[in-house]
Simulated assay, not measured.
Amino acid sequence: MKTDPRIDAYIDDKAADFAKPILRHVRSVIHEACPDCEETLKWSMPSFMYKGKILAGIASFKAHASFGFWSGSQVVDTSGKSATAMGQFGRLTSLDDLPDRKTLIDLTRKAMKLIDDGVKPVRNKHEKPPFTVPQDLQAAIDASPAAKATWEAFPPSCKREYVEWVTEAKRDETRTKRLNQTIELLNEGKRRHWKYENC
């Protein structure tokens, strides 16, 4: 078993008392089904890797725990309670919320086979509603040729980031400040989150 002491610490120190037996049980089942899996932390949560790919993950929250396969609906029928929590088994509050051990082993092996076969996880695309550029922002962009050229070259996602940033301002002073900063950044040819692009 390739375990990670950080997972022990997560379960022993961070998990709520009700969640500890759930997380320990899932952990042991994953290792039984997939002796070659390796443990690690992804997004600060325990994850199980198989052949360099994420196989599954567990987590503990205040009122529930979660367990899910990275390939999600390709492994488990996700209709029903899974829509209310991370993972495919809904909000776990006791071991009774999980399928029996044999079923979990079978599901884990199914997830492993997807990785073996090179099948990529299916992800649902969350379509964002269309956005409208407010008049004051459009007027400011139109008044600056450099800003307008940058704006027109941007894909919709970059434009949306600026629109949301300006329109989410609660006070008029904040909105004006953000509007001015937007034009400055556009004049420099920069996206809203340009600082993080080369990280």
Results as ranks from 00 to 15, higher is better:
residue 1 M to L: 12
residue 3 T to W: 02
residue 3 T to K: 12
residue 4 D to K: 02
residue 4 D to H: 02
residue 6 R to S: 09
residue 7 I to G: 09
residue 7 I to S: 02
residue 8 D to R: 04
residue 9 A to R: 10
residue 11 I to H: 06
residue 12 D to C: 10
residue 14 K to W: 04
residue 15 A to I: 03
residue 17 D to S: 09
residue 18 F to I: 10
residue 19 A to N: 01
residue 21 P to N: 10
residue 22 I to A: 05
residue 22 I to D: 07
residue 22 I to K: 06
residue 24 R to H: 14
residue 28 S to I: 08
residue 28 S to Y: 03
residue 29 V to N: 04
residue 30 I to W: 06
residue 32 E to I: 05
residue 34 C to M: 05
residue 36 D to Y: 02
residue 38 E to V: 14
residue 39 E to D: 02
residue 40 T to F: 04
residue 42 K to E: 00
residue 42 K to M: 12
residue 44 S to R: 15
residue 45 M to F: 12
residue 46 P to V: 15
residue 47 S to A: 15
residue 52 G to W: 00
residue 53 K to W: 09
residue 53 K to T: 07
residue 54 I to T: 14
residue 55 L to Y: 11
residue 57 G to A: 12
residue 57 G to K: 05
residue 57 G to M: 15
residue 57 G to E: 08
residue 58 I to N: 10
residue 59 A to C: 08
residue 60 S to M: 06
residue 62 K to Q: 08
residue 64 H to S: 09
residue 64 H to N: 12
residue 67 F to V: 05
residue 67 F to S: 01
residue 68 G to L: 07
residue 69 F to C: 05
residue 71 S to K: 13
residue 73 S to L: 07
residue 74 Q to D: 07
residue 74 Q to S: 06
residue 80 G to F: 05
residue 81 K to H: 03
residue 81 K to L: 11
residue 86 M to S: 11
residue 90 G to F: 00
residue 91 R to P: 04
residue 92 L to E: 08
residue 93 T to V: 15
residue 93 T to Q: 08
residue 94 S to A: 03
residue 94 S to Y: 11
residue 97 D to K: 10
residue 98 L to M: 13
residue 98 L to W: 06
residue 100 D to K: 10
residue 100 D to W: 01
residue 101 R to E: 14
residue 103 T to M: 06
residue 103 T to S: 04
residue 107 L to G: 07
residue 109 R to M: 13
residue 109 R to I: 01
residue 109 R to C: 14
residue 111 A to W: 03
residue 112 M to I: 08
residue 116 D to R: 10
residue 117 D to A: 04
residue 118 G to P: 03
residue 118 G to I: 06
residue 126 H to Q: 13
residue 129 P to N: 15
residue 130 P to W: 05
residue 130 P to N: 11
residue 130 P to H: 08
residue 134 P to S: 11
residue 136 D to R: 10
residue 138 Q to H: 03
residue 140 A to W: 05
residue 140 A to Y: 04
residue 141 I to F: 05
residue 144 S to L: 04
residue 145 P to W: 07
residue 147 A to F: 06
residue 150 T to F: 03
residue 151 W to Y: 01
residue 153 A to M: 08
residue 154 F to D: 06
residue 154 F to S: 10
residue 154 F to M: 15
residue 155 P to Y: 10
residue 160 R to Q: 00
residue 165 W to M: 09
residue 167 T to E: 14
residue 173 E to H: 12
residue 173 E to G: 06
residue 176 T to K: 15
residue 178 R to D: 00
residue 181 Q to L: 09
residue 182 T to E: 07
residue 184 E to R: 08
residue 185 L to F: 02
residue 188 E to Y: 04
residue 188 E to W: 00
residue 190 K to S: 09
residue 190 K to D: 04
residue 190 K to W: 00
residue 191 R to C: 02
residue 191 R to G: 07
residue 193 H to C: 13
residue 194 W to P: 03
residue 197 E to V: 04
residue 198 N to Q: 09
